[in-house]
Nucleic acid binder design. Structure first.
Lengths: 212, 212
DNA sequence: AAGCAACTACCACCAAAGTAGTATTTTTAT
DNA sequence: ATAAAAATACTACTTTGGTGGTAGTTGCTT
């Protein structure tokens, strides 16, 4: 029977042993390597091309994210699943940005871990249960408390239209006012938001998710 | 013992019955209402304020999303969990945008459903297992194959600087070339990307994640 | 060697954007 | 009822942006 090969990357030997032990109980999985740093991980991976790499985030030397990024840049087909204690939002988002194939928490139940590992090997993206909320949250519209409230309706309208690439003339036509008035609104909203140009305004709108 | 109250919103009576039956097996949950449209859902919710609303997406009349949006706009404390057959990405994203408290698939296992419902009631965001991948995917950087490859180095540089709000003069200074040359690059890149102005260029850069 | 793409530059022109100041009307808040 | 804020408009002016055409230089490809 074909076994899936796994590389463990973590600078805590005890933890590696624990995970290795757990995996050894499964006869379709096999730990073919254990390393304690990002550099070793990369070296091992290019040589042995494991099916899956379980990668700790917090390591001395190359950070987990850097390692992930390096692995993904190299021509490596191994799935790389982050295995971390951190449920920190930016860590997760970073990992995602670098195309991790999963993000599992170290305090997962053993059965869950094994199950998710199996899923990851067949190409599914896996993530620990408690993190789904964080993922979801980061997709949500920002809680707006901000300076946007200092803008008048018309100014917000103008801002949105600027961000949609409209010229002053087009905005004027759309709002049924003169171009002169549009300019007034622009000037005021630029001042309120501390912007120098409509391009900056457009970018501001994007950042603050103000758009049609 | 305190029971959590649930409102079912779905235009298929049979399905409602099935879910109601399932829920009735749990003694900490209680279905206090079943309705078949968004309007009824809103009316019921404001009057009886259930702890949880299970909301179908595909309904006649008010769509699920509209209902969700209306519920969230009203001063309603009920958790609203989408209960749908659709694993369509845009549906999920839309629901998220309107701050749904969860998104469950109708073909979930009964036990999973009950478990997730319980989690949702205590305020956790819940989502059916198979959808985590979709969530994750939508957070990832876009697969770039695109037109950006048709741009020259200089054009890309210009584009990035435009997107950072720089004027032509500033770009010229930064790149050590004349403003005239900057304009040439702009003109060419606008043409290649089919853009009318630097604002559109900035927005294009955002969409295609081309930035410094 | 000829050809091509990229980068540079300049000119001339016109359109668009932005600034300042003044002023009227409408809406909103006190 | 009165004051303040918002929306509208205009003039006049300066700066910035965008288009068209021409052209020289470099480096790579065939």
């Amino acid at each position: 029977m074909k076994q899936a090969s796994i590389l463990l990357v973590d600078d805590h030997p005890m933890l590696r042993k624990g995970v290795a032990q757990l995996i050894s109980l499964e006869d379709n999985l096999k730990v073919i390597g254990e390393v304690s740093s990002g550099d070793e991980a990369i070296a091992f991976a290019v040589k042995n091309m494991p099916d899956l790499i379980l990668l700790d985030l917090n390591m001395k030397g190359l950070s987990g994210t850097e390692t992930l990024s390096a692995l993904k840049r190299a021509n490596i087909t191994s799935k790389v699943v982050i295995f971390s204690v951190s449920d920190n939002e930016t860590d997760i988002l970073q990992a995602l940005k670098f195309n991790a194939d999963g993000y599992l928490l170290k305090d997962s139940e053993p059965e869950e871990l094994i199950e998710k590992i199996n899923h990851a090997i067949i190409g599914e993206f896996v993530i620990s249960e408690p993190l789904t909320q964080i993922l979801a949250k980061s997709l949500r519209p920002q809680n707006r408390v901000s300076v946007i409230d200092s803008l008048t309706q018309r100014e917000v309208e103008n801002l949105k239209l600027i961000a949609s690439g409209k010229s002053n003339k087009e905005i004027a036509r759309k709002l049924g006012i003169t171009e002169a008035t549009v300019k007034v609104h622009n000037k005021n909203l630029f001042k309120k938001l501390g912007l120098k140009s409509r391009v900056e305004a457009a970018m501001w709108a994007v950042e603050h998710k103000v758009s049609h």
